[in-house]
Amino acid sequence: MGMMRRLPRFDYLAPTTLQEACAMLQQHQGQAKLLAGGTDLLVNMKRRDETPQYVIGLKQVSGLDYVRDGDTLHIGPLAVLHQLELSPAVRQKWPILVEACDHFGSTQIRNLATVAGNLCSASPSADMATPLIVLGARLKLKSASGERQVAADQFFVAPFKTVMREDEILADIEVPALSERAAAVYERHSLREAMDHALVGVSVMVQLGRGTTCQDAHIALGACAPTPRRAPKAEAALRGKQLTAEVIAEAAKTASTDADPRTDPEYKRQIVEVLTRRALNRALTEVQGK
């Protein structure tokens, strides 16, 4: 991490349509960065961790800041976290996203930082990543040459690196509805109650069949591997099982082996186990209360 300095020199480009933005990205491939909220990019530039020659500001493109709910939820590329917090539909149908926002930065930062930007920055501890993974979100990537869809759990490839090509824009986040017998929750461990990144974050989605039988389970781990990632062994340990305390405890223990923490591994694995167990218990209680 470099020392904080003045912003380096760059050219600012201001497209008015998404197509124009895509064309600019294609033209300046590898030398341009998109600016949405700027809470990551501008800091990185001041620290010289990123020195793009062109900054493409999306501010002049209208209609990108939507949070649209229906059967599925659509989050636009310029929608800031605070919009999720304010949306009654999100609060009711996708409350895990509100939980994740709750922990994120400060009010001021949530009014600037975009959901899409949080994903694109691809921090291993990105708070929006694991909730969107367990909800099965699909990300629309648009470029001058076309568009494609990627599942959220396939999006991250390395710390601060995603599958996105340098000419692509994350144009839409689509979040399916949870089924009637499902709940998703986010558990997070950090030192402070605000303005802090997750030391470990765990999201789970539990879908019940008959009684307390687990029909499907998604578990995603944050800040304990090079990328936000699923916990496939732990998920497998739940599917088709009665969700007894023992099964949950066992799956939580398994989740700690799905984690691959690079710093403080012993401690982080222990926290993964604790948070996974708490998250599963809370999700189970929520489904049963529906």
């Binding site: 991490m1 402070r192 109650e193 605000a194 303005m195 802090d196 990144h197």
Partner: peptide, 15 residues
């Protein structure tokens, strides 16, 4: 290595 208010952990009002 932690000279900013994000990484240098002072208590917040919520703490």
């Amino acid at each position: 290595i932690n000279p900013d208010f994000f990484d240098y952990k002072m208590p917040t009002a919520l703490d």
